[in-house]
């Protein structure tokens, strides 16, 4: 299979994936109470992108998908409704620059922002190691405590 054919195949796949995607842009209209600092480092052969998928939890397991924010290197400000348990899924999409393979890995947690509370998230991906840490900002902007990761309580399926 020659390079032009491969290119056409890759472009067709991209168009198909984009067309089938159920992702939507998060409205991000609430007061910005989550400051996400992102550091992504791909390599010569591998690219990496990060996204934050936001869901409003209805119960301990299921929720409504509100939208997605792309996390580019640097600061991204996100507004999350206070007092509402919100399921955050930080997704790292990796792809081989020359085509052939791709993958997604996620870090998920539940955040219920306090009214007037401010939060920071440090998000990084480098050398196939990813890290997400969320902190509540303390009084006068001091770095606060790191929030424990919270998982959904979903029934086990075999």
């Amino acid at each position: 299979m020659g390079p032009p054919f491969r290119l056409v195949c890759s472009l067709s796949l991209l168009v198909a994936v984009a067309g089938c995607s159920n992702l939507k842009t998060y409205p991000n209209t609430a007061d910005k109470n989550l400051q996400v600092q992102t550091k992504l480092s791909g390599s010569f052969l591998t690219g990496v992108e990060a996204f934050l998928h936001i869901h409003r939890l209805k119960d301990s397991c299921s929720g409504d998908y509100l939208g997605t924010v792309e996390l580019k290197n640097g600061l991204t400000q996100v507004g999350i409704a206070p007092g509402q348990p919100t399921y955050l899924a930080f997704a790292f999409n990796t792809s081989a620059r020359l085509g052939g393979s791709f993958g997604t890995t996620s870090y998920t947690t539940i955040l219920t922002p306090r009214a007037g509370g401010q939060y920071t998230a440090d998000v990084s991906y480098a050398d196939r190691i990813y890290n997400v840490s969320i902190r509540e900002v303390g009084p006068r902007g001091a770095p606060g405590r790191e929030l424990e990761r919270r998982t959904r309580d979903c029934p086990k399926t075999e």
Binding site: F92, T94, G103, T105, Y107, S124, Y125, D127, R128, I129, Y130, N131, S133
Partner: peptide, 21 residues
């Protein structure tokens, strides 16, 4: 090696990230 690298970061306390398995 990826798991080893992640574990090394955990025990040294300088990188608490997870390996992208």
């Amino acid at each position: 090696n990826l798991i080893r690298k992640a574990m090394r970061g955990w025990v040294q306390g300088d990188n608490l990230g997870c390996p992208d398995l």
